[in-house]
Structure formats: C-alpha cells, structure tokens
Nucleic acid binder design. Sequence first.
DNA 1: AAGATTGTTGCTTA
DNA 2: TTAAGCAACAATCT
Length: 291
Amino acid sequence: MPELPEVETIKRDLEKKIIGTRIINFIDLWPKTLKGIKAPDFKKKVIGQKLVKVTRRAKLIIIKLENNLNLVFHMKMTGHLLIEPDTRKIDSDGNWVRKEGALKDPYNQYIRAVFWLDNNKIIAFSDLRKFGYIKLLTSIQLNLVTSEFGPEPFSVDFKASYLQKKFSKKRIAIKKALLDQKIIAGIGNIYADEILYRAAIHPETQANKISVKEIDKIIILTRKILGDSIEARGTSTSDYRDTDGQQGKYMNKLKVYGKKGSLCDKCQTEIEKIKVGARGTYFCPKCQVKR
DNA sequence: AAGATTGTTGCTTA
DNA sequence: TTAAGCAACAATCT
C-alpha cells in the first residue's frame, strides 16, 4: 500500500523527472479514474500546461500547473505513477499496448490514464484495483481537501500536546486512531502496526488510555520508521512500485506486518494476527500486552 | 468458492 | 454535535 514513505518517494522522483515539462496529450482508459470531471473538459484545461511544482499531503500527490489548477492523484492500494519513454500506443481495438522495444512492464494491462509530456516521456497511471483517482482542483478546492487532514508527521504541529488532546477524546483502538487521517496524515496499515510494535503498545488499547510517555514514544518512532522507510524508498509487500516500476526495500526491515507465525525479534514469541477495525493487524502478544 | 485484502467516503445509529 | 461502526467501491489471490 502506498503510505507516506511510498508517496513521498514518488513525489521526489516526479520532482526530478517532470518539473518544467509540458503536457501535450492525455487519454483515460478507465473513465472512473477521473473524478468530478469528464475527459474532454479535463483535456481542455490540462493540455499545453507546464508542470510547475510537485507536493505531497498525506497520501496525495499534487502537481501544480501553470494555470494554477492542481492535478491530484490518490494511489489507494495498487496505484502507480510510471514515468517511461513514450513507447506505447493504442491498437485498432482501443487496447493499450506496448510499442516494440518498450521497457518490460508487468503493469501494462492495468494502465488507466496516460499523460504525454513534451520531453518524449509519459506519465502512466496504472491501478489494478481501480480505486485510485485523478482530480483537477483549483487551489481553493485543494485547500478544502488538505485542511481536513491532521498534521504531517515531520511537521512541528505533530507534537505531544496535540496528540494528547486528540487521543483524550477517543475511545477507539489506538491502531484506528493512527490510521485516522484527520488525526495524523499519511499512516496506513503497515506503518501503524510497525509503530505500535516498536512502542510496545497493544493495537486494541483505547486511545484515551495511552500515557504521555507512550505518546512521546509514538511521535519519535513514527518519525524514525517513516524516515527510514523513505530512505529505503518504501515498502513493496505487494503492489507498490516507484516511478521506474522498481520495488522499495523497507520490507526487509519490517518487524511485524505480514509476519504472522514468525518469531518476535525481542522475545522470540510468535507474531499473531487479529482484526482491528476490520483491518489485518500484526503484533507480538508478549511485547504488546493487552490492558 | 467464499472470504480476505486495502483506503476512503458516506450513511446509519447511538 | 460528535463518535463509532459498517457497507461500498474493485479485482485478485488463497
């Protein structure tokens, strides 16, 4: 799943590869990919525009255009933004195929939208499960969206006094609180489990029962884990790939996520899997004691 | 072959 | 007014 480290990796790659280029064409191969706008209207507003700036907020990628409109991408579970040489074409049946000599790409059949750029490259939005989307928003509309998110984990606003205030009002499981984008932006299922394991907190602990000391731990560990994962270019437990179609390397450093039955690093107890808020949740029953 | 998987939204209920 | 739970979305794998 693309969570903060994966989306941040994509954002940094895009910054290097596409800033200053111009969009010269667009096609949507799965109509629902464009949310809130139809392709003809979208094309009118986007074609000819220079890509001015790339930012990330929570799990959103935002590309600012010269005309002050913003391309907003959400990868959901299986989305990719692939930057490739322009070696693709549409065949007579309307199918999206590789031209001869194109890079090998296992996601060819899942491409939902394509932007052609004026540097002979394309941005291909691939998404196996079709949950991801592209929106075109004014800065005002974008602000309405991003202002709903809680603080970024690396911002100064993400601090103990803030989390104390938020958690004190919540009786939900701490894991659900970490996943709530209105409380903290960018954490998903993988990193929530990793943070709670390293903080030695049972994922079902009520958020309002988390101590001040534990809140300090959560803040430090969140930054440590997300930072390390960004350095490793993210986690590819299943579908995540960067703009070159390459996997991240943080999988090897995971302590609990996806590791049911393997032994805890700290105490050699078997890692267990339970459901918390309808999400698969991995933890060590000895290090993360229920209360 | 049903159930699990995932992030987010929108609805319902308390 | 707020909190919390759940269905829905989509497709694939077990």
